[in-house]
């Protein structure tokens, strides 16, 4: 998580520029929140169900490079690599989140506003506390911010909105992660395979739940 030393100074300069620029860009962005992109349509009532779809196939994606950087860092804090499975970004979870917030459906459009505002808040908070992009903070610094917003019921009043964002972002990260083959393996989903017969739970399961 530690940024490379050589990137520090230029990044600081860049950050200053970004804070100014993002304020301007976000003013423009706000106008489009809550409304789908003009040309975006849903997949309709007779989509080809046999097709393989990837984010961006059906409607244009939203996130800028800067937003993707923040989202990627946050995804990997929520789901880092461990001995059982890779980190969220390695499974392209950010692409899924981008597809989700770009979808022309009411629920996703509502989420779009929460996510985009939330990503902006993350950067503003990083700049305020540590003078760096969120993705460039040390793990400890990133946790300091996330710990304040990771559970809405216990969040301080000034962090409630950010905690609401974090909750949604975490939900979407799990959605993007555990629907993949690596996610199935991590969680122990071993179905979707043709069987000759269904044997019911094996003895070790019955024992585990106290039925034998």
């Amino acid at each position: 998580m530690k940024p490379k030393p050589t990137s520090r100074l230029p990044r600081r300069v860049a950050l200053k520029w970004m804070v100014v620029a993002s304020a301007t860009i976000s003013m423009l962005d706000w106008r489009s929140f809550g409304a789908p992109a003009a040309t975006a349509k849903g997949y309709g009532l007779d989509a080809n169900l046999l097709e393989t779809y990837i984010p961006g196939d059906l409607w244009p994606l939203t996130l800028t490079e800067a937003q993707r950087r923040t989202a990627t860092a946050l995804c990997d804090i929520i789901i880092p690599a461990d001995s059982k499975s890779p980190a969220a970004s390695q499974l392209h979870v950010v692409d899924f989140i981008d597809e989700w917030i770009s979808a022309p459906y009411p629920e996703q459009q509502a989420h779009r506003e929460i996510i985009l505002k939330g990503l902006e808040w993350m950067e503003a908070e990083s700049a305020k506390r540590f003078k760096f992009f969120f993705a460039e903070l040390s793990g400890q610094e990133q946790y300091a911010i996330c710990d304040d917003i990771c559970f809405e019921p216990k969040a301080a009043p000034e962090f409630r909105t950010a905690a609401n964002f974090f909750s949604l972002f975490r939900n979407l990260t799990t959605g993007g992660f555990y629907t993949t083959p690596a996610g199935w393996k991590d969680i122990g989903y071993v179905g979707n395979v043709a069987l000759q017969k269904f044997d019911g739970p094996p003895p070790e399961v019955l024992k585990h739940v106290g039925l034998i």
């Binding site: 990771c150 939900n171 799990t174 959605g175 993007g176 629907t179 989903y189 179905g191 979707n192």
Partner: peptide, 11 residues
């Protein structure tokens, strides 16, 4: 089979 919402609200 996990879907997008399987772990929504797990907090």
């Amino acid at each position: 089979m996990p879907d997008a919402r399987t772990f929504f609200g797990m907090e």
